[in-house]
Simulated assay, not measured.
Amino acid sequence: MNKIQEKRSIRAFMLSNVMAGLEGSIVATALPAMMAELHGIKLMSWVVTIYMLLMAVSSPIWTKLAERFGYKQMFVLGTLLFTIGSLGEGLAINILMVIVARALMGLGAGVMIQLPFVIYGMMYQADERRRVIGNTVAAYSFSTIAGPIVGGADCHFT
């Protein structure tokens, strides 16, 4: 892998962490407005819970699948699931569709959060690995702070 490919990979991994972090926190802030529009107050807690649950449970499974079938293939598959879930969430017409879409997103987020760190472990020695992982964690942390702000602004202006 040359330096250009390496930099692109790191940016893609950081972006995946940012997207998963934003998704986890934007929806929590926008949830009251979503529930008012979709009339799903009884199932409201599942919208947040299913995402976090499937993200946490699927992370070690994705890692094992990546060892067997390839890291790139599993990362692409997880990102595709996340994207399909995001599209489904945006097009949802009722709360059950939102929950199913969030479940797909949670499965995809499991790979988007976990696999970059496994790949960093294979790509870098300890000194360089610390720097790259620190930058990725900083990007994720920023997204979890920015998410509620974006979610709140979206609810305020719509």
Score class of each variant (00 low, 15 high):
Asn2Gly: 15
Lys3Glu: 14
Ile4Gly: 06
Lys7Ser: 12
Lys7Arg: 15
Arg8Met: 13
Ala12Ile: 08
Phe13Thr: 00
Met14Asn: 07
Leu15Arg: 02
Asn17Thr: 12
Asn17Ile: 09
Val18Asp: 01
Ala20Trp: 00
Gly21Asp: 10
Glu23Trp: 09
Gly24Phe: 01
Ser25Pro: 03
Ala28Leu: 09
Ala28Ser: 12
Ala30Gly: 05
Pro32Trp: 05
Ala33Met: 12
Ala33Trp: 11
Ala33Gly: 05
Leu38Gly: 05
His39Ser: 14
Gly40Tyr: 00
Lys42His: 14
Lys42Ile: 07
Val47Phe: 03
Val48Ile: 15
Ile50Ser: 10
Leu53Asp: 04
Leu53Ile: 11
Ala56Glu: 07
Ala56Thr: 08
Val57His: 03
Val57Cys: 09
Ser58Thr: 13
Ser59Pro: 07
Pro60Ala: 10
Trp62Lys: 00
Thr63Val: 14
Lys64Gln: 13
Glu67Pro: 03
Phe69Thr: 07
Phe69Ala: 09
Lys72Asn: 08
Thr79Cys: 10
Thr79Tyr: 11
Leu81Cys: 07
Phe82Cys: 02
Phe82Asn: 00
Thr83Lys: 00
Ile84Trp: 00
Gly85Met: 09
Leu87Thr: 06
Leu87Ile: 15
Leu96Trp: 15
Met97Pro: 00
Val100Cys: 04
Val100Arg: 00
Ala101Asp: 00
Arg102Met: 07
Arg102Asp: 11
Ala103Arg: 05
Leu104Cys: 12
Met105Pro: 03
Met105Lys: 04
Gly108Arg: 02
Gly110Cys: 09
Gly110Thr: 06
Gly110Asp: 06
Val111Phe: 03
Val111Ala: 12
Ile113Phe: 05
Leu115Arg: 05
Pro116Met: 08
Val118Asn: 05
Ile119Ser: 05
Gly121Val: 08
Gly121Ser: 10
Gly121Ile: 11
Tyr124Gln: 04
Tyr124Trp: 11
Gln125Leu: 11
Asp127Thr: 14
Glu128Val: 06
Glu128Trp: 07
Arg130His: 13
Val132Gln: 06
Gly134Pro: 04
Asn135Glu: 11
Val137Ala: 14
Ala138Met: 13
Ser141Gln: 08
Ser143Cys: 06
Ser143Arg: 00
Thr144Cys: 12
Ile145Ser: 11
Ile145His: 06
Ala146Tyr: 02
Gly147Asp: 02
Pro148His: 05
Pro148Thr: 08
Pro148Met: 08
Ile149Tyr: 10
Ile149Gln: 04
Ile149Arg: 02
Gly152Val: 08
Gly152His: 11
Ala153Glu: 06
Asp154Val: 15
Asp154Ser: 14
His156Tyr: 15
Phe157Tyr: 14
